[in-house]
Design a protein around this nucleic acid. Structure first.
Lengths: 204, 204
DNA sequence: ATCTCAACTTACAACCATTGTAAGTTTATC
DNA sequence: GATAAACTTACAATGGTTGTAAGTTGAGAT
């Protein structure tokens, strides 16, 4: 029952063409200097069609991630089936790193370029955080469901702390100009810290 | 040397008039249904003037908070002068709650309305998070500076974890429909959790 | 009190994202 | 092939944002 009709194929082609055109233009001329009309022209469709596929200029970059929040959610659910919450959360952090560094394409170079683009444009960074907020929301619900002895507030805090720590570590790495792989390593430091608690920061 | 010239007074009046007109209209007709032209007309200036005062429609709501990040930063610096990092971080969390619930006006009802407005419009929520990201960035720098034995990654993680936990707790409270004061209480739970570490979540 | 400059404001025009509409095409089905 | 449903398009309109040139006004010097 896989929708393999001509219609469906064309739609996927158009979607991919729009995404690729957008990435190319954003990298060549910058996000702000690229108009929606140019992207559409490059992909060979009308602007209106672009808006039929994506709900806005930003969404061309985020649509795939949005559609993939479920993946993350399901992975966490499975982690929780096999592990106690602290360990499941640690594993979630790993999954999350993968999730964030995977975009529309299986090609790593494009995903890297996309990540850099997002982090360098304030507007897009904000959008990315909003997406993360939505994801955290759902992950907290999953945690509460799988570990009912954790009330919603505690579950929300736990998810927020973990993801916040990762984000904080990443931010520090980005400021320092680290490579993507260094940043992944840094994120691990954040994860460890929040796992054991901030009290360990006391100078002994 | 307080700038008390007529010119300065008028500027502050105009700024306040714009902010108040915006809040009134946003509440009456909703954020999206209010045009910048209407806000300007209500405040008795041209649209262009609005853009001279604020860098955009969103910024009418956020300008004051942006200008006040320094307050938060200085408060944290002072906390760190008198306390070890874990305790300073806990105190920071309190300051942050105040900071977030204080807007342009000293009037509490307006601030509450503003907070609700921001949380209910995705676009504004995203903006709010971006602002928080900026704040975290600077707070992490302050922490690293005051406690040099914490490398930048660890400092970033600590700040991120704390603020992330607070945010997670708040989110849970908001979803549940809690009042603002309940949310403040919930935030405390998040703070405690991250202070002691996620390991305590294990079911014993 | 007046003059002059710099700071502000305004009217106007232009650009671009986004949306609604009506008409034209294409694919899936029978 | 005929027909309906699904898509795409051209076009027009709305609203945020910016640049420009001209008009006002407060501040300081005379």
């Amino acid at each position: 029952m896989q929708e393999v009709g001509l219609r469906e194929q064309k739609k996927q082609q158009t979607r991919a063409a729009l995404f690729e055109a957008a990435m190319r233009l954003f990298q060549e001329k910058g996000y702000a200097n690229t108009t929606v009309a140019q992207i559409a022209a490059e992909a060979g469709v009308s602007t209106k069609t672009l808006f039929n596929y994506f709900s806005g200029k930003e969404d061309v970059l985020f649509a795939h991630r949005m559609r993939r929040i479920d993946t993350l959610e399901n992975a966490f659910r499975e982690r929780l089936a096999d592990n106690a919450p602290p360990q499941a959360l640690r594993l979630l952090a790993r999954d999350l790193l993968d999730w964030m560094s995977t975009g529309e394409e299986p090609r790593g170079d494009i995903n890297l370029a996309q990540a850099k683009l997002i982090m360098s444009v304030p507007e897009l960074r904000a959008r990315s955080q909003a997406l993360l907020y939505e994801a955290e929301n759902r992950l907290a619900a999953v945690l509460h469901e799988a570990a009912p002895w954790l009330d919603p507030i505690t579950a929300g805090s736990a998810v927020g702390a973990l993801i916040g720590a990762m984000q904080g570590a990443s931010r520090a790495g980005i400021n320092r100009g680290d490579s993507l792989s260094d940043i992944v390593g840094s994120a691990q430091i954040g994860i460890d810290l929040v796992t054991r608690g901030l009290d360990q920061l006391a100078q002994t």
